[in-house]
């Protein structure tokens, strides 16, 4: 259903529009947007064959809840990548945000929701600031996003190591932890709160990307920056904003991450950037930019978490080979997707 919105994006891409009335192309896009869902279905079938407990409600909610951080962060990455950028700093940014948030809550003290609200505001603020920094250096510094965000990755990680003095930053007030805990472990009508969060974030992102001028500008820049420039798209502003949105998404992810273990360590969020980028690509967004599939991204995050889950639940993969099988499944999932697209 989402692909209808996708095609409606096309006119905004200025210069790429003529093909949109071609029914063959429409079908191709349909398939492309559907393929992550097909890969997900295949994976679920595989999981069901592997283990009798795979399809239990508990297991599936566990997996969906665990996927929520990467899903939210990857939604942000969809904006950055769609605009032809890249953000390698999100894992470190997440760790820093979590660390500062916990320190802020410890400083305020008291097991009240107001304390948590202060922490949340601080977290969003830190993440937005990191995102803005990345964006401004990329656009106004005219430096490759790979390099800028690699630098950011080092800076944010070092800052959290510094704040933790190499140890752990932990919520010191046990009662406050108990108050905050339901944000990760709680549910509304059986749906875990983190799952609701990533669905809402993805829905809002889809509206922004597919229904607003800003969304069309993002796609235009990612498709062809020169054309976008001549069409009067404010490139720097739009591109910077994509990094700010990425920051915001990292902040939101941390709001649901912190209540889980109530701590941040120097290893928090390690390799999340790669997981987020993988989720985006599995979801069907091209790394070279221009074709965002927000719902595909969310499915991509679910696929990554499901693969890890199946590995632990199944008995026939040696613990030494888990990494190899995980990698292989992801590559096969992508191959299946590509062949589906070509098949049409």
């Amino acid at each position: 259903m989402r692909m209808n919105e996708m095609t409606s994006v096309e006119p905004g891409t200025k210069g790429e529009a003529p093909e949109r009335t071609n029914p063959a192309r429409r079908a191709r896009i349909d398939m492309r947007a559907l393929s992550p869902f097909i890969a997900l279905a295949v994976l679920i079938a595989l999981g069901a064959l592997t283990s009798p407990v795979f399809l239990t409600l508990d297991n599936l909610t566990n997996v969906a809840t665990r996927a929520s951080f990467i899903a939210v962060i990857a939604v942000g990455a969809t904006f950055v990548i769609a605009a032809g950028g890249l953000d390698l700093s999100v894992g470190s940014m997440a760790a820093l945000t979590a660390g500062v948030m916990i320190l802020a809550m410890n400083a305020v003290g008291g097991a009240e929701w107001t304390t948590i609200a202060v922490g949340m505001a601080v977290a969003i603020g830190v993440a937005l600031a990191c995102g803005l920094f990345n964006g401004l250096v990329v656009t106004f510094g005219r430096i490759e996003p790979f390099i800028v965000t690699l630098g950011g990755m080092g800076i944010y990680r070092a800052l959290v190591v510094f704040l933790a003095a190499g140890g752990t930053i932990t919520m010191s007030d046990w009662d406050l932890r108990e108050t905050y805990r339901p944000i990760y472990f709680g549910d509304v009508l059986g749906v875990p709160i983190p799952v609701i969060v990533f669905l809402v974030v993805a829905a809002i992102a889809a509206v922004i990307l597919y229904k607003t001028p800003f969304g069309r500008h993002v796609v235009a820049i990612g498709s062809n920056e020169e054309v976008a420039r001549f069409s009067g798209v404010p490139i720097r502003r739009v591109r910077t904003l994509t990094y700010v949105i990425q920051g915001l998404c990292v902040g939101i992810a941390i709001l649901i991450y912190v209540p889980r273990l109530g701590s941040a360590t120097p290893t928090t969020g390690l390799l999340w950037e790669l997981q987020a980028i993988t989720a985006v690509v599995i979801g069907g967004t091209a790394l070279k930019g221009g074709t965002p599939f927000v719902w595909g991204t969310v499915v991509g995050a679910l696929i990554l978490e499901l693969v890890a889950n199946i590995m632990v639940l199944s008995d026939f993969v040696s613990e030494y080979l888990v990494g190899a099988v995980q990698g292989a499944i992801i590559i096969i999932a992508m191959l299946v997707q590509r062949s589906l697209q070509r098949g049409r």
Binding site: V53, N62, T267, V312, L313, E319
Partner: peptide, 23 residues
């Protein structure tokens, strides 16, 4: 009955243990 790598990492250990508990 089971053994998995969790990389000396809290989050990975949480994930692996959730799956052990399901299994």
């Amino acid at each position: 009955v089971d053994s998995q790598y969790a990389n000396w990492n809290r989050d990975d250990a949480f994930r692996v243990m959730q799956d052990f508990l399901s299994k």
